[in-house]
Design a protein around this nucleic acid. Structure first.
Lengths: 247, 247
DNA sequence: TCAAAAGTGTTTAACTTACACCCATGT
DNA sequence: ACATGGGTGTAAGTTAAACACTTTTGA
């Protein structure tokens, strides 16, 4: 047990914030990555992030970084703390502890184009998790945890709507579930289900006409944040029903 | 955006680990608190915790602190990262970021008696959350978040069993739910439900004889970690069914 | 008229709830 | 015998899954 009295620095730890910003583009889950302009890992891809400022809470730091990277107001998106990572040698510069945040954004018009000088780009998540693309530091682990959290939260919250633009159809919403879970969902049962969840969807009265098919009613996000009853997670290409309670 | 190159200390942040260790004693949810022996907040109650060591991951630091406080092996308990707190002036000594962990323990034989010199004691959670007892730093917030997490996790995981001793009855388990949720549960339906969840309970074949009533079968924790179907949370003294999806 | 997407209705199975009822023990 | 807690059976209401079927558009 270490006891400390004065204003302490206990071997000077640096604290950063890293963001897992997810969106859906072209029916694929994407994550926003930046190319590092400085060592370590210069030139490699990494999650956007940075050091916390002196007079700033960590949630503020995350909002600030998010605004810098996506030019989106954090009040318009889903932003939540994910986990803190502190493996001793995760950063070659010294002891750096990072607090990771998960953000869920609609598909943004510009590829990213924040005010920041670094190149930011959307990359398919599958590419990274399958090991085809490497990330700096332990960012693959952080990304995996972020995606896992997003998948879990679709079940019992209304985050799915945060992937959609302000106005969206029920099909748009369903495609979010299908893409993030990598499973297909019966459109008819899905429709009935989400419509009956109180506060999930607010009808706008408008309809969207597509190339073909009956026009779909348009909705905006409702005030609800939790889903009850929850959406049952359809597992991709596995045994159908028995929903084992694996260890 | 701050750019840094060398081995950085960026205004020297100190990192601590704080533990919300919950248990059930005398049908009440309790938390382990220590009385601080040094300033700041000398003499006041606080969550147990301490600074991380130089060559230690944060999960290890949490396990170490837990062992010091409860003399229990972290492999025998439920221990998970809760959240990181970093409000600028949360510690008067300077910038201290704390990573909070949630631990769930069975009712321990000794009141706490770790190897540590500080007094540790179990206190009813209600006493603190109702404002009757103050805690140092922002520890009331951390405690509230920890309790909220525990409540939520009873629904869809098997953590409830972590509150029980190694060998326990279904009534013991039910009492966990009733105490943590502050609600009463039908013993008959509860019994059927948990028995049918695959991997939750392992029968020992033994029975426990109480002062009165039919002897109850004894179980130990099974390998399952998730509960499906989930346990529906009975809300304490509220409107019965409609389970609103509040904002 | 046809293709395609949106949306409704119906059936079956699974699960929750409430509660009647039986079981096994100590006094 | 009876009080007490453990445990099973069952009927009513709710929800999910599967799928037949209708609606509304563009081509």
């Amino acid at each position: 047990m270490i006891l400390v009295t004065g204003p302490v620095t206990i071997e000077g730890v640096a604290v950063t914030v890293d963001l897992v910003i997810l969106t859906i583009r072209e029916d694929q889950l994407h994550v926003l990555l930046v190319q590092r302009g400085i060592p370590p890992y210069e030139g490699e891809l990494a999650l956007p992030g940075g050091f916390i400022h002196a007079e700033e809470d960590i949630d503020e730091a995350a909002s600030r970084e998010l605004a810098e990277e996506t030019s989106l107001d954090s009040r318009q998106l889903h932003l939540e703390q994910l986990r803190t990572y502190a493996r001793p040698r995760r950063d070659p510069r010294g002891r750096v502890v990072t607090v990771a945040y998960l953000a869920v954004a609609p598909d943004l018009p510009a590829p990213a184009g924040g005010s920041d000088a670094r190149d930011a780009s959307w990359r398919p998540v599958s590419e990274i998790l399958e090991g085809k693309t490497a990330l700096a530091f332990d960012h693959v682990v952080i990304l995996r945890d972020g995606v896992e959290r997003a998948r879990a939260k679709l079940e019992y919250t209304t985050v799915a709507a945060a992937f959609c633009p302000e106005i969206f159809t029920i099909s748009d919403l369903r495609r979010v579930y299908e893409v993030v879970w990598g499973a297909s969902i019966d459109p008819r049962n899905f429709h009935r289900k989400v419509v009956h969840v109180n506060g999930f969807l607010q009808p706008t009265g408008e309809k969207r006409v597509l190339d073909t098919g009956r026009p779909a009613s348009l909705y905006r996000r409702g005030p609800a944040t939790v889903l009850f009853p929850p959406m049952l997670r359809a597992t991709p290409a596995e045994s159908p029903s028995p929903r084992a309670t694996a260890a």
